[in-house]
């Protein structure tokens, strides 16, 4: 554990909390992509299957449980409790176009061809692109509430901080995982346009509105 890794995890945790607070306080999931949230739930479940096979640390176990539980809580709020506020019409991204290629890629490029390893790799590839339905929704509606922007910023920062963690680990421990690094770089790149808008608009007190 190094400072970048810890900051990344805390940023990830903050993102999830912000999202739950937004939905709970406003009693609405308007502007949030249910498709992205489904993909994140798939990511956590397929990645954290090792919860039942390997014990790494209490921190590791607790965080995994928090991520899985909170993603299902989010889905429950969106698809059951506040279903009426869910923006069906704008959330039209076809997630099979992400799920299938990621699965095929995981079958082809992985560290070892075992069920757990393929699913872990699948989750890494899927996480890299899971935010696309959300970014698509923001681009369709042309704007995002400020708390949704904070959520996206925290979520994007998390993998960017992991990239610093991997650079640090490469030099400090000689450890690197090309699959995670490659996917993490793609994931971070997808947020760049959003990061730019967040810094130039939201941090200056303006609403995130895309140029027409």
């Amino acid at each position: 554990m190094n400072i970048f890794r810890l900051a990344g995890d805390l940023s990830h945790l903050l993102a999830i909390i912000l999202l739950l607070i937004k939905i709970w306080k406003t009693r609405s999931c308007a502007g949030i992509s249910g498709k992205s949230q489904i993909l994140f739930a798939v990511v956590y479940v397929s990645r954290y299957l090792d919860l039942v096979t390997t014990f790494i640390s209490l921190y590791n176990t607790l965080m995994k449980l928090v991520f899985i539980t909170s993603s299902f809580a989010t889905l429950y709020l969106m698809y059951v409790k506040f279903k009426a506020t869910y923006d069906h019409n704008h959330d039209s991204f076809r997630i099979e176009f992400l799920l299938l290629p990621c699965f095929v890629l995981a079958l082809l490029i992985n560290a070892s061809f075992t069920p757990l390893e393929v699913l872990w790799t699948f989750s890494i590839y899927l996480e890299a692109v899971a935010i696309l339905p959300q970014l698509f929704l923001v681009s369709k509606t042309g704007e995002a509430e400020s708390i949704t922007s904070h959520y996206l910023f925290a979520l994007g920062s998390y993998r960017a901080l992991y990239l610093l963690n991997w650079i640090y680990r490469y030099y400090a421990e000689g450890h690197y995982d090309l699959i995670a690094i490659f996917a993490g770089a793609i994931q971070t790149i997808l947020y760049c346009d959003f990061f730019y808008l967040y810094i130039t608009k939201v941090l200056k007190g303006k609403k995130l509105q895309l140029p027409a």
Partner: peptide
């Protein structure tokens, strides 16, 4: 996986 290092990450 031979290198378990990435599995302690989330």
């Amino acid at each position: 996986k031979e290198d378990e290092g990435s599995k302690d990450e989330l």
